[in-house]
């Protein structure tokens, strides 16, 4: 265990102990500290309050604060673990951890299930999937006849909704993802492997004397 100093980052409103966060996530202490550099820059981009609001989140992701999108909103809601309308550093690290290449497969399955379960009922319902499909078509400018959308939904639910009750439960989702592993591709961010190289300035603000992994 490293030795701690009282540094400016400890006074930062959204800051949490990197050693504790590292123990709870797929990140090392150094990686958590590197993420703090990213977090500081995002959380001060519009309002310098040490928390990430939705506008700052979208600005960081899309370089455009006005882009309203169903998926962006859903990702923000999932990162906002404590449901405070803002993301603190702990939320940020724990949520991003799911996207780490070394994060447990089950965590990725759980997160993706929540992502598609828009209303949080514990089921992915046909209407939710249709809503997301339409959002995707709007975003991409793709045009598909409603009949084609329904055929795609029929096929999807025929494969995924094994008990044919019109909704996909967690266990059906787990099986469906096992048969279609490419569905989890969006759940891995290769950038997270090199986070300390992307934000090398963390070294100057590090609170640990030695690298703790």
């Amino acid at each position: 265990m490293g030795c701690f100093h009282s540094t400016a980052s400890k006074q930062f409103p959204g800051h949490e102990d990197p050693v504790i966060l590292a123990s709870q996530t797929a990140f090392s202490v150094s990686e958590v500290e590197a993420l703090f550099e990213l977090y500081k820059s995002i959380s001060s981009s519009v309002i310098d309050d040490g928390l990430i609001n939705k506008e700052e989140f979208q600005l960081a992701l899309f370089k455009n604060r006005k882009k309203e999108n169903l998926f962006a909103n859903r990702i923000f809601e999932l990162f906002d673990v404590k449901k405070k309308g803002v993301i603190d550093f702990g939320d940020f690290v724990k949520s991003l951890s799911v996207f780490h290449p070394n994060a447990p497969h089950e965590d990725k399955i759980d997160f993706s299930f929540k992502l598609y379960d828009l209303d949080g009922t514990g089921f992915i319902e046909r209407q939710e999937v249709k809503q997301m499909l339409i959002a995707l078509l709007c975003e991409s400018g793709m045009k598909l006849a409603d009949e084609t959308v329904e055929i795609i939904l029929d096929k999807t639910f025929l494969e995924a909704d094994v008990n044919q009750d019109g909704k996909i439960d967690k266990s059906e989702w787990q099986n469906f993802v096992r048969q279609n592993p490419s569905l989890l591709k969006i759940m891995t961010l290769p950038y997270l492997r090199d986070i300390t190289t992307t934000f090398p300035s963390f070294v100057f603000h590090s609170e640990v004397d030695e690298i703790v992994t």
């Binding site: 990213l38 992701l61 998926f71 997301m132 795609i152 950038y191």
Partner: peptide, 29 residues
């Protein structure tokens, strides 16, 4: 399976194409 029937992409593969589900933007300057 009918070999003549076209292979349809499933709904989640399509949804996964959304650029808004790609968090790489956090790391691109």
């Amino acid at each position: 399976k009918n070999p003549d029937s076209p292979t349809l992409i499933n709904a989640f593969q399509l949804i996964g194409m959304s650029s808004c589900l790609d968090l790489s933007g956090f790391f691109e300057k």
